[in-house]
Write a protein that binds this DNA or RNA. Structure first.
Lengths: 208, 208, 208, 208
DNA sequence: GATGAATGAGTGTTCATTCAT
DNA sequence: CATGAATGAACACTCATTCAT
């Protein structure tokens, strides 16, 4: 009995993953507004109702998609930050790892951008709450540049500047890569990242 | 006769403006994906076919919406920049005027964000080309921070830094206000703007 | 007053004729199913409501179109038949004049074919009754080959054959040109007409 | 398993056939221009979307309708011709079988006439190409009187006459039955057919 | 575990017609 | 004499969802 259900769960998980992957590709290619369950199912090669069998409804599917995206981004970026000891190192790692991830995961990026702007859950939840477990939320905190900047100021590695605003501006500057890459596929994201590291170092530097 | 035709044109323009305004509100409130011509018409209080009578099809309506938005933004931001003499003044004016505009035109902003991500024209045009006349395109160039930064470096008012990347980062940092405001209506955009002016001044300052 | 109304009537008639002509062209080009009052008005260069001003509604417009077509065909074919003295001469003239008319009035032909198959009047009238005055109906009787064949048999110019069926078959054979021409614009209708004259002469010939 | 899938296919085929039949009836009754998917669905007793589920779009439905008509006509007429040995026999069989078919399949006939004149496929295809497989096209060649007339002349069973024009005239004369029957339901098509056999025999007869 | 059939709500668009001017 | 504005009905088509199998 147990082995049976395990086996079932395994194939089930595989199918779910397969569908989520296909969904991300479809969304990235044709945009969320044009994405339908049928098109996703077509890409997987199963019947439309099979998708609904696995996810119940469209909202649940989006939940799964977003969770998958967070996990993927987290796995790529968090280790790079944690590997650094100094705040300056962590800041540079944050910028570089994020931009490198964006550069190498354009499909997921495009899909996430589409969902972020175009998707509104049927139930009242806000977009940030989708695909979100308490555990995941904690882990994602690592990705917030705010904590890095605060730490850097507290141990006087960084000088005086408006932490909250700088954090927000930095996130904006980093995220600008997304639109840019999607519009200009040949954009040199790496060079931009290095420039951004330099620009930020001037801002956080201790003023003499 | 002339006054007659003017009157007619005026009436027509008024209705068109009324519909565009209503459309922007609807898009901002429920998102582009959920927006339909019928819902826009309902808000105006006319039949759905009246909207199509004035704009022919949905694409033309979006064209009109976007043109209206560009004009509105241009009228709000350009004069503030042009009123300044120094590059530093223009840079600060760019930041402040943009953020102030974002802060005071949230509905238009939300709608534009929705369209930018979710709308794909039926014909081949890219999003940048929508609602765009040659004349408008020229005027919009004024709003690009790149020209300000380049000028500042040329007359040695600014120091040495990666102009292209800084320009892009700045646009990203400014645009970050949009998402923030939409998510946190009480966000103090003005304070963020002042902080951003300060942060930027450090980056562009001549290094001793 | 009278001169006024006459003037009005004249321009009115001109406009009506102009609209009818345009309508025939449009129907021939895009088919009755795709024809709308707006498209007809566009071709004339007037507002859609101007067409309705002149004809009241779509049915009346079709009436006018069909009447115009009958008159045109009648004017082209009837004299040719009446110019002949013998039944054989009339029969040949019937065939030749009809086919020549079809060959040289393809637009009207295409339009008539479209209307004949696709148009159903809102009121109960049958298609034959459209655009039909009593006077016109009488004149049209001349175009029926049946009367020619009957006369030819009565004065023993023709031999023995089934008059009604031959008449119907002949009309069918003549009308076949319409479809053929519309499908193959280079079809040699004249040669077909001559062949048809020959074929018919065999059928009506007095058997020895 | 196999029986299962067969059953499914069978059900599907049955529904498709049911819809096609209903569509033919509707078209025959109210004309193609007035025919809508909804009206067809209403006749079947299903939702409009059910029709679209089975055929995808209106064009595909028309394709299926026309194919069905060709098959039906072919099955009725071809065997009768092939059963004859002489060219004269085949010619008479062609006329009689066609007219008998027209007489007994008025609904299909009316529908075909409607489609032939009023329907224009969305894609570029011409009307002849609709519902047409290569296999079907070959089989339909049997129905062309041209081949019968040519064969009759080659083995001197028939005399000298313009084969192409006679073939076209014959088709026209046969098809004339369609309009006649639709306008006069009590028309004696059989008698007309016999007359037509007689008329044709005179034309093709060897002249002494 | 997965599927095909079916549906109802909703979409953008076309159209003939009405009406005040 | 002619127009622009507006409308309601109809249209083909898409979609997420339900359900029996």
């Amino acid at each position: 009995m147990r082995s049976d259900s395990k086996k079932v769960t395994f194939t089930q998980a595989a199918r779910r993953a397969q569908i989520v992957t296909a969904a991300i590709e479809v969304i990235a290619e044709i945009g969320w507004a044009q994405t339908s369950i049928r098109k996703i199912a077509d890409r997987v090669g199963v019947a439309m109702s099979a998708v609904l069998y696995h996810f119940g409804n469209k909202d649940n599917l989006v939940d799964a998609i977003i969770e998958e995206m967070y996990r993927s981004a987290l796995a790529a970026v968090a280790p790079a930050i944690q590997a650094e000891n100094t705040s300056a190192g962590k800041l540079a790692a944050y910028i570089r790892a994020n931009i490198a991830y964006f550069d190498s995961h354009r499909t997921q990026l495009a899909a996430l951008a589409q969902l972020g702007a175009g998707y509104q859950p049927t139930d009242g939840r806000r977009f940030d709450e989708l695909g979100m477990t308490e555990e995941l939320r904690e882990e994602l905190a690592i990705l917030d540049p705010n904590s890095i900047l605060v730490a850097g100021q507290q141990d006087h590695e960084f000088g005086d500047f408006a932490v909250g605003s700088m954090s927000m501006a930095l996130r904006g500057a980093v995220n600008a890569v997304v639109e840019k890459i999607l519009r200009e596929p040949d954009f040199d994201a790496h060079a931009y990242g290095e420039d951004l590291v330099d620009i930020c170092s001037r801002v956080v530097a201790v003023q003499r």
